[in-house]
Every structure is written in C-alpha cells, then in structure tokens.
Design a protein around this nucleic acid. Structure first.
Lengths: 229, 229
DNA sequence: CAGAAATTTGACCAGTTGGAAAAAACGTTA
DNA sequence: TAACGTTTTTTCCAACTGGTCAAATTTCTG
C-alpha cells in the first residue's frame, strides 16, 4: 500500500535542500542535509503540535532546532512544506495499526492488539497525535480530501471485517464505524489530553504506569462492558 | 458550587466595556454593550476554536463580528481577555454534566444519562469543545492549575461514587478514573474530530443522525461490551 | 432639543512575521 | 592549495500583529 500523500503545493517534488540549481539535475543529498533536515523536523514537530500551523513561527522552530531562521529556510524554503512533511509522516504512522487488522483473525486478539497498538502510539508518538488533532480542530484543510477517499475506503474495508465477526456470532451486533471511532477516541485521548489526564490522576498515579492502567481498563471495557454478567 | 475561575490577568475585574472612568464608580452596562459583547464573544468562539489562541487574530474576530478592530477593542481591550472569558464559560458548561452524577442513583441510568448529556454537549456546543481541546493541546497554560485542583477534586469525588457502585456489586470492578476518561474521550470525539467522523461516515450516514447512532453504540459499549454473553 | 455620555472611526505605531538576497565562511576534492 | 559547491550569516523588507489615541459620530437623558 502506497504511503499517504498530503496534497503538496508547488513544492518542486518536496525534495528540500539546496536552492534549485537552475536546470541542472539535482545532486544527491549531503550528510549535513539529511542531519539538519532531521533536526528541523524534530523541532518543528514540537512547535507545530503545540501551537498549530498558524500559531507556530519559523523563529520558534529555528530556535528549537538551534539554528538561525534563514539557515532553516535554506533547508525548507516554506513553513508550509515542513508542516506537510510532518503531517504526511504522521498519517502513515497513524494508520499502520488499522491496516494490520486481519480479517482471518479472531476478534478478541485482533481488537485487543489494535487497542494496544493504538495506545502505544499515544505513548510513543504523542506529538504526532497532537499535530493531527490540531489539524482536525482546524477542519482538516490539508487532509480533508484524503480523509474522504483513502481513510474512508480503509475504514469501510475494516468495517466489513468487523461485520464478518458479527455474522459469525463472535461479537455482538453493533455499529462498526462507531466502534472504530471509540477506539480512536479512547486511545488518542491519552496523547491529546495528556495534561488533563496527568492533572486528574495526580502525582502518584500520573506516572508512566497510567498507560498500563489504561490498557487494562480499555480491554475490559471493550470486551465486557461495565455490567456484571 | 461556584463557577470555575480562570486565572484572570489584571483585567480590572473583567467587567469589560467603557474605558475605566477614572475613580468614578462604573455605570451599569448599556444595551449596546451587552449586545456587542455577545456578538464579539460569538465571533471569537468561532475563530479561537478553529485557530487556537495564537493562531487567531483580532482582525479575524472583528471581521466575523462585523465591526472594526478598534471598535472591538473598545469592548474587550485585550485579546487575552476575550479568550479567558470564553474558556471560563466553557469550563462551566463542560463540567455541569459531571457534577450532576448522583451518588444515590443507580449506575445504569446515571451512566446512561451522563453519556447522553456529554454527547449532547458535543452536538450542541462543538466549538466550545474544540476551544477546550485547543487549550489542552497547548499544554493547558491557562487552566492547568484549576485542572489540578478543582477538576481533580471533582473527579476524585465522582470516582468515589463509582467505587461505591462497585462495592455494591452493581458494576464490574474497574478503574473509575479511566472510566471517566473514556466517557470524555468518546463523547468529545464527535465534536473535536467532527470533520473526520463526517468524512468517514460519508454523505449518507454523516447527517445529524450520527449522534443518535453514536448514543446507541456508546450505551451498548459501556454497559455490555462487545462479547456476547 | 441641548448637552453629556457612549460609540465608532481613521490614522498611527512598534514589534513580529514569513521570506528574499547577497555576501561571507566552510568543506571537499582534484 | 585552488577552485568549486555547500552552508551559514547578515541585512533587509513588506505585510501583519496587538494595541493606542484623538477626533468624529451616534445615542441617551433631562
């Protein structure tokens, strides 16, 4: 499956770096280019995920990356370009677990594993999650199209898988779309609303253990619900 | 219970309007003052909930409110002040359903009613929800303190209620904090990720009916889980 | 209706923003 | 080490930002 493409503006192929040498075929990337681009993307992820696209400034990113603004602009000539790179990268990471849901598998291990994976993403890539959340809050101006095509197709497909499980009587008959939404919501909550979760749990329970607790709770919730049998 | 207070800067008591008449006791609010402030707050909610604090500009808000920037600044001398007003207002609305959870009630109707109320908030006040989400993504700089005190206290209290239900054997023994988180997450998802939900559901299922579907799904999920008995 | 108070407008300002341009410094390799 | 391509810095700019201020206009009250 090809990686998700975010609609790139006229980015000259997105292969950032040296200012378009006129009509000469572009050289391979330098070591420095690769390293600095990495540093910049890392810093930009920090800033964009906190402030959103409009709220973030190139100066902030440059400072976080430990370089001057013009220097940063040497590697990524547009703010927009950095943002889109991060967004595309994020979408790939983000969708991987859903893609892995297997139609031949049994629902219990499949769902359990999907929950676990999504929760791990919130733990290991919280900034990516917040970047995406920021984009959603703004109405997804850059990814709406891909949500309506690629994502919808993928979810349609997995909804079919879930319906197969229902037909086989392996899980209760319910709405597969809202099931997927609720898994997304509950797991991403631990990245997007991390401050709140930590504030409410307090110092003693707000440590890294909270992800273990969350995993246990969510597994029980999704499999058994709250009512005793 | 007193309304939540967001830490106000030196806002002269937050009673916006006419430029502080020196040492004269402030007059009552004019009709125009009340009306325009309402228009401004409404427009600001639109803009702030989409762009976040930094991303929003006074010009945008003024235009959405149909007035000039200096005119807007006549009613709210600081951008920060508008934002804080909206945030405080939001927190009150947002916490009301949680406050209503009753210790004497039976868990099934109580939880069902809490879910329904929270989902109604996402349907009826989606911008407020997104405003709050934006603030969380930024690390809650303006409300962290109140999350750690007021909100934590409230949740601690309600967690006790839920534990009471467990002691009585009325619901399964589980983590009450993560239960509350999961209710927040699943319901707010329909406001904060509205674009995505609609994109995935598509034109036919993305209408207002999605809230009905979500309510039915969530009720079943929380009460019974996915596995057949 | 006159006068005072409230509201609106237009001109303005200092600081920030995304980005351009050119020159200077650096690294590499023949 | 000279020459060339790469990287970095310096300087600069026009547009935008939050906000001020005084003058003009409108609304209210006696």
């Amino acid at each position: 499956m090809p990686p998700i493409k975010v609609k790139m503006l006229e980015t000259e192929g997105g292969k950032g770096g040296a200012k378009a040498a006129p009509s000469k075929r572009p050289r391979a990337q330098t070591r420095i280019q690769r390293e600095k681009q990495e540093v910049i993307l890392e810093a930009a992820l920090d800033v964009f995920s906190r402030e959103g696209f409009r709220g973030a400034t190139i100066d902030q990113i440059a400072e976080a990356a430990g370089m001057s603004k013009p220097n940063l602009l040497y590697y990524f000539p547009r703010k927009e370009e950095i943002y889109q790179r991060l967004l595309a990268e994020m979408l790939d990471i983000w969708l991987a677990p859903l893609r892995e849901i297997d139609s031949v598998g049994d629902p219990v291990p499949e769902l359990r594993s999907y929950l676990r994976r999504k929760l791990e993403m919130s733990r290991d890539y919280p900034r990516q999650s917040r970047l995406f959340a920021n984009e959603m809050l703004q109405g997804a101006p850059r990814v709406l199209e891909m949500l309506e095509t690629d994502l919808k197709a993928l979810v349609d497909d997995k909804a079919k898988v879930i319906e197969g499980w229902m037909d086989a009587g392996k899980i209760v008959r319910t709405d597969p779309y809202h099931l997927i939404f609720s898994i997304w919501a509950t797991t991403q909550h631990y990245a997007d609303f991390d401050v709140q979760v930590r504030a409410v749990l307090g110092k003693d329970r707000g440590g890294e253990g909270r992800f273990e607790d969350a995993a246990r709770f969510l597994e029980n919730l999704f499999l058994h619900g709250l009512l005793p049998k």
